[in-house]
Design a protein around this nucleic acid. Structure first.
Lengths: 356, 356
DNA sequence: CCGCGGCTTGGTAGCGCTGTCAATAGTTCT
DNA sequence: AGAACTATTGACAGCGCTACCAAGCCGCGG
């Protein structure tokens, strides 16, 4: 009757327990709460496991314990450099811990996000990291009824589902525009691609700054739903010049666009910063070594990913953070492309955000 | 005695079966081999599952069936643009299938790779995708005794562990150097960063081409184990010029370096292509819109990832590919930066590899 | 009319691990 | 010394699903 489904060579917890001379449950405890074992048994189980090369069966563990050690991560894009930095941070933080990452791509669709959320939650993840604060109401309630820790990433806002880590895109953009205004610019263009919620909030920061200075002009704004690229930066800039030939500065919602603008300036023999000032956003590595070096807003992407994963893990293990919303701030990295020659003539400086 | 551990609200297969008026095992079959059911029951189970919003418990499934639906992916870096393209292809191919991806980062260490391989294999993945062909002997035998499909990615070689998809880095580099030679260059420098096995094979291609032309000179080679960056491109180029001031062309083992060289040329007032020809490798998006536009070797990264995942899935499901080693080839994208003015003066052309 | 083979369907018994509770030692306190 | 604890350990019964085997059903040929 009892057919043998177990292969003989298989190392199960039972085998380890037998070799260590303890009961299976004690061996099990060794892997979960070693401090509950006497030193004696702890050593015995440890060496038995090592000797047999025991590797726990995660499926069995998940089934029996009704939970997993998987942290779900939802990002809107895998292409974007921004997310690769964040992901690196997340993977680094998880590395060496007992947890593993399950990554999914929402492709900038909150409906897709909701669908993925359902799939994830059905598998009872240990924790969840989602991008942004613009979920569907259904996603929101799904997350609220779940008891696993959740971090919303990349932005900060008023009512976190649980925890939140990021920075204010509006403030960051505002700071960059303020810098350009200080340089004496009056006709500052805004170039944006994809226009996801974060880019939209940067645009908000731009609008606020321009309105405050009394310099608003719709002709200065060129955006597109297309995904960003360097080439697109050139195209958008051409559009901008067609609409507003007197543009004296360009803020690009990301660095690819800024590089595209720089190249387009070369093509058109527009000298930077003499005739046009440029600022990007994100501060990718190439910005500093471009000629002229390109001003950008540095965001702590790697640190954001790392901290998010660390927060989730801490929360899973009962160490709830003292503050649920963490502002990682930003830094305007002022470089050659946005310093008007003769205007103060001061060397490039950094302007830090007020973040803790 | 029998304590209730099952929460009442839980939707299990049993609930679905009950509502559909069939036995649990029949309901189970619906999700695995629907064609084995009569149309009648198939429809009944389907609607019952939908009505209850049933989501299968993957841990239970994995435990009972002794296998998972996870495809493990080992890449050496999460930062590198190259891998983000490959990963996007992999995720796209897996999207919508029953399989999911488990990603791990070897950080360019084959020992780390071996460690991760052990962890992965212990969980009985449905398939495996690894980067490159330079595994430790232990890794190699681990993979050989495993019965799950394995794809080696990014390169092609003689003895695949199982399947293989990529292209010849040596040939690709050789083609780029040949192009530069055709342009009349004699002092072609090689710039390389990180020097992982793939970059080393590109270097081999460079050496072969230079040797064949009788133009070998160690002073023309500048490499570093440091990770690549645009800034580093400038630095390496400066080193190159110090060693070989008469350099008339530079091949960069990747595009970041090439962009760095371009910027450094601007800084030093070296005009491209009049005084110096440049070629990069990978053909990232920005290469085409740089000024001057930058020559590069296009590799089909996205397609590589996509095809690899498709091959693994096919193999898992018993559809073994007709050919185990797939060469996706490359294309030398000739642009302004590598066409000598007056030398043939022909418009930029593409030169395709011989890959099928 | 009986028997045989193919197509469906169901019953049974785990997969390897852990939650719950109980029991056994070893201490400390009054 | 006896009671009251605490620190360790073990027994038992599943977690939700599927592999394996068996049985029921149908139509057809002899």
């Amino acid at each position: 009757m009892a057919r043998k489904r177990t292969k003989p060579g298989k190392i199960r917890l039972t085998e380890v327990a037998k070799l260590a001379g303890v009961s299976p449950i004690t061996a099990s405890r060794f892997f979960r709460t070693p401090e509950a074992l006497s030193i004696n048994k702890r050593v015995r189980v440890d060496s038995a496991a090592k000797e047999l090369g025991y590797v726990p069966n995660l499926a069995a563990r998940a089934l029996a314990s009704q939970r997993t050690e998987v942290i779900g991560v939802l990002v809107p894009s895998l292409t974007n450099n921004v997310f690769s930095d964040v992901l690196r941070g997340i993977y680094d933080a998880v590395d060496g811990s007992r947890y593993s990452i399950q990554l999914a791509n929402t492709r900038y669709s909150i409906l897709q996000e909701e669908k993925l959320l359902r799939v994830f939650l059905a598998q009872k993840p240990a924790g969840l990291i989602v991008t942004g604060i613009d979920q569907t109401p259904e996603s929101r309630s799904l997350m609220e009824v779940t008891d696993c820790p959740i971090v919303q990433l990349m932005e900060i806002g008023d009512n976190p589902v649980d925890m939140m880590i990021g920075f204010s895109h509006a403030d960051a953009c505002h700071a960059a525009i303020s810098h350009l205004l200080e340089q004496g610019c009056r006709r500052i263009g805004f170039l944006g691609a994809r226009m996801d919620p974060r880019v939209q909030r940067r645009f908000l920061g731009y609008q606020q700054a321009m309105k405050h200075a009394g310099l608003t002009d719709p002709r200065l704004v060129v955006t597109t739903p297309l995904p960003t690229s360097v080439t697109l930066g050139g195209t958008l800039f051409a559009d901008l010049l067609a609409k507003a030939p007197d543009t004296d500065a360009v803020f690009c919602a990301n660095d690819d666009l800024a590089l595209g603008v720089l190249f387009e300036c070369r093509r058109r023999q527009i000298s930077v910063p003499e005739q046009l000032l440029i600022s990007g956003f994100n501060d990718l590595e190439f910005m500093a070594s471009a000629v002229p070096s390109l001003t950008s807003v540095r965001t702590n992407r790697y640190e954001m990913g790392r901290a998010a994963a660390a927060m989730v893990i801490d929360a899973i293990e009962g160490r709830r953070p003292e503050q649920k919303v963490v502002d990682l701030g930003f830094t305007v990295m002022v470089r050659q492309s946005s310093v008007r020659p003769g205007h103060g003539g001061r060397a490039p400086v950094e302007r830090q955000s007020a973040a803790e």
